[in-house]
Computed example of a mutant assay.
Amino acid sequence: MFRYAVRIDGDAKSGMASLVDWPQVCAPINGNVAFVLKENLLLKISESVRSGTLIPVPKSRPVEELCVRLSTAQSLKVLVLNEMYASGVDMRFLARDLGVTESAIRRALDLSLSTDVDFLSEVLAVMGRRLLAYTAAK
């Protein structure tokens, strides 16, 4: 699961919160800032998908209380999308190679929809990659 570290600039009344690794994702500090940041993060990811640009992944170690989390499924989809963009592979090519429609690929990579890990593994296989899963101590 991706955990994006949050940076707070200013005070509680007029400050701004932003993601350390993606500063364009920001929100004023009022109400539930983590919720607003996550909504803004999902919007920025959608913009990256539409433009076909790499999606920044978290590199900074977040403070547990103040971070924005993507689910494991969303994180996996971001990894697959980034692999597509890095490899120069488009959804049309994937659809043709996998024998499915382009809309099926779009649905499979939509962060708001359910996740078929086996299908994402097939998508990665088309690009010469494979999905590995392992456990790690915290």
Rank of each mutant, 00 (worst) to 15 (best):
F2L: 00
A5I: 14
A5V: 14
G10V: 05
G10K: 10
K13N: 06
G15C: 08
M16T: 14
A17N: 11
V20C: 14
D21A: 13
D21V: 10
C26K: 15
A27I: 12
A27N: 09
I29T: 06
L37K: 13
K38M: 01
L42R: 12
L43P: 00
L43G: 03
E47R: 11
S48K: 14
V49H: 12
V49D: 12
V49C: 09
R50L: 14
S51D: 13
S51H: 12
P58F: 12
K59T: 12
P62I: 01
P62L: 04
P62T: 02
E64F: 14
E65S: 13
C67G: 00
R69G: 02
S71M: 03
Q74K: 05
K77D: 03
K77C: 03
K77H: 09
K77Q: 03
V80Y: 12
L81C: 10
A86T: 08
A86P: 02
V89P: 07
L94N: 09
L98I: 07
V100E: 02
E102Y: 04
S103R: 15
A104S: 14
A108T: 07
D110N: 15
S112M: 04
S114F: 06
D116V: 01
V117H: 01
D118F: 06
S121T: 02
V126I: 14
M127G: 03
G128H: 11
G128A: 08
R129N: 09
R130T: 10
L131N: 09
L131Q: 09
L132W: 09
Y134E: 13
Y134K: 09
T135M: 10
T135Q: 11
K138Y: 11
